[in-house]
Design a protein around this nucleic acid. Sequence first.
DNA 1: AAGTTCCCCTGTTAGC
DNA 2: TGCTAACAGGGGAACT
Length: 275
Amino acid sequence: MPELPEVQVVINYLNSNIINKKIIDIEIRLQKLFKNIRPIDFKKKVTNHSFKNIIRKGKYLIFILDNGAIVLSHLRMEGKYNYDKNDKIEKHDHIIYKFADNTTLKYNDSRQFGTIHYFNNINDALNSKELKKIGIDPFDENFNSKSLLSQFKKSNKKLKTFLLDQSHIAGIGNIYANEICFATGLSPESLCCNLSSKDIENIIIETKKILKESIKYNGTTIHSFTFSKWDIGNYQDKLLVHGRKKCPRCENDIIKLKINGRGTYFCKKCQKIKK
DNA sequence: AAGTTCCCCTGTTAGC
DNA sequence: TGCTAACAGGGGAACT
């Protein structure tokens, strides 16, 4: 389940492989991925162009074409990009970009949850309802307690729910939300409005630290099957609370419950609740 | 208005 | 062993 670090790793992977390669054909095998354009029109508009750059906003991948048009891609749970030289189509390969040098980029998504949007230019993309609501990026220089303090203070959400809300902070998913709560010693059930300024400062610091560290390890790989080239992350070995049975700090049992339908792991002893 | 629940989907796992 | 049900989860829609 790609979150910010995994998406960044994918983007780095794509930027080092597919830039400036002329797209000579696109095969679309799952129509419903395309949200604001008919697949046939997408194919018409993108064929004979090339990707100039790929950037990230939250968990979205923004592919910038040589003519300034934008392909916006969200991987959701299982979306993967696989660049290679063979044209063998695997199960769940839904979009196949064929380049002039006989290489291919395949979008593979076993759960079919991913999405593709097309925009004529970057401004249209950034002003779309998909991107407009995305909050501040943890690697933005303005990502600090000053910019987030009031959002925390006036929110009645649980901390975990707040961290997962992309309109507050961009890119945090379920795994890192659990890790951030653990690192700060705060229960995921704590109410945001009851957090102290010091708590919020710690959340900012730990968020930066954890996401940065994860990118260093190429992200987290927790799937039952893995095959794409980027999918070689090792941060799963660094996770302190997500998926664990015992607290690595105090050896007590890790509690598992659901907050807003998401599996939530925490240590009752090490993580204080502020109700 | 803000917060919560359901739903999309398929592969894996737990339970009988 | 083989079946079914539960689970995984990002985000949008529909609900309270």
